[in-house]
Amino acid sequence: MEVAIQWLKSILRKPFPFLHPSHSPPPPPPELAASEDGTPKPFPPQAQLLDLSIPLISFCLASATSIALLFPQIHGETPPSIHFFCLALVIAFSSVMVAKFISPKFPYAANMLELSAIFCVATGFYLGITLFLPLSLKIVSWFIYCLSLIVIIVCS
Rank of each mutant, 00 (worst) to 15 (best):
W7L: 08
I5T: 12
V121K: 02
M112V: 09
S116W: 04
A117P: 03
T130C: 14
I11S: 00
F143C: 14
A88E: 06
T123V: 08
E114A: 05
L56R: 00
A99P: 01
L133D: 07
E114V: 02
S156F: 02
F16L: 13
I82Q: 12
L113H: 04
P80F: 15
T78I: 15
L52E: 01
F71N: 12
F119M: 06
L133M: 15
C120P: 02
L133F: 14
F101E: 05
P80N: 15
F143W: 13
S95Q: 08
V90T: 11
H20S: 13
C86W: 10
K14A: 03
I102G: 03
I144C: 14
T130H: 05
S35A: 15
I118H: 06
Y126F: 15
H75A: 08
Q48A: 09
L8F: 03
P25S: 12
P21V: 14
S136T: 09
L19W: 10
L32W: 04
L87M: 12
S81I: 15
K14W: 02
L149I: 05
T123M: 09
I11V: 09
L61W: 01
I139E: 11
A34D: 13
A4C: 04
I5F: 09
Y126G: 02
S81F: 06
V151E: 05
D51T: 01
F93L: 14
G128L: 06
T130W: 04
N111P: 00
H75V: 04
T123P: 00
P55M: 01
P45G: 08
L69R: 13
S103T: 12
E36L: 14
P80A: 15
A62P: 02
P55Y: 00
